[in-house]
């Protein structure tokens, strides 16, 4: 299972990086969100994939899963949700104001 996850994470990283390196702003945003997904999967995998009951008192199971990575991933998902939506709004505004979503044209100049 870990090997499968490793491949999945690797592919997500690859696709994310590829998208971030492209010129269109929309693709870049999609790339960042894929990248963060990859990181979340990485966090899940690195803290060992094992089965067990939810770490709650009522479960009375012999084997519990580690709650910490899940808490971390949840926090990270929330943050990336907020940031991505902010990024989207900003990209849209920038597109309206600047009339382009091509990063080549968003370079800026030295003499400003």
């Amino acid at each position: 299972m870990e090997i499968l996850m490793a491949f999945a994470i690797g592919i997500l990283f690859m696709v994310g990086t590829y998208l971030i390196l492209s010129r269109s702003l929309l693709r870049i945003i999609l790339g960042t969100s894929l990248l963060t997904h990859a990181v979340h999967l990485l966090l899940l995998t690195m803290s060992r994939l094992k089965t067990g009951a939810a770490p709650l008192l009522g479960e009375k199971a012999g084997n519990y899963v580690d709650p910490l990575p899940q808490a971390l991933i949840l926090t990270s998902i929330v943050i990336s949700f907020g940031v991505t939506s902010f990024f989207f709004v900003l990209a849209y505004r920038a597109y309206q104001e600047l009339g382009t979503d091509d990063m080549e044209q968003l370079r800026g100049h030295d003499d400003e």
Partner: peptide, 13 residues
């Protein structure tokens, strides 16, 4: 509040 603020501000325009 946060979710609706985000969605409304994306959808507003």
């Amino acid at each position: 509040g946060v979710t609706m603020t985000i969605i409304l501000s994306i959808g507003e325009d």
